[in-house]
């Protein structure tokens, strides 16, 4: 049985999956990630907060779209822990 972990938004704002509109996404489902790796950003008050993987593993899916509004506690992505 595999263990899964959910990454949630720590603050309200806008969720970004890319560092910049013209750049590729940080990660895609299926990608391996390390603990502490940036998988998205939350933009609020013209500042950006890094959303990171809290364990080593693989991205299963994102629950929110790029540039979607989020509130604190919203589920952002699911990881499979390796």
């Amino acid at each position: 049985m595999t263990e899964r972990t959910t990454v949630t938004a720590p603050m309200p704002g806008v969720f970004y999956r890319r560092p910049d509109p013209d750049e590729p996404t940080f990660v895609e489902p299926g990608d391996a990630v390390e603990s502490g790796e940036v998988i998205g950003l939350i933009g609020v008050m013209k500042n950006f907060h890094d959303i990171t993987a809290d364990e080593d593993g693989e991205v299963v899916e994102f629950f929110v779209e790029n540039e979607q509004e989020v509130d604190a506690g919203d589920e952002l992505a699911e990881l499979e822990v390796s």
Binding site: P12, G13, V14, G43, V44, M45, K46, E69
Partner: peptide, 9 residues
């Protein structure tokens, strides 16, 4: 009224 994500100092 909804507070926008740009609302700041």
């Amino acid at each position: 009224w909804k507070i926008s994500d740009e609302a700041d100092r």
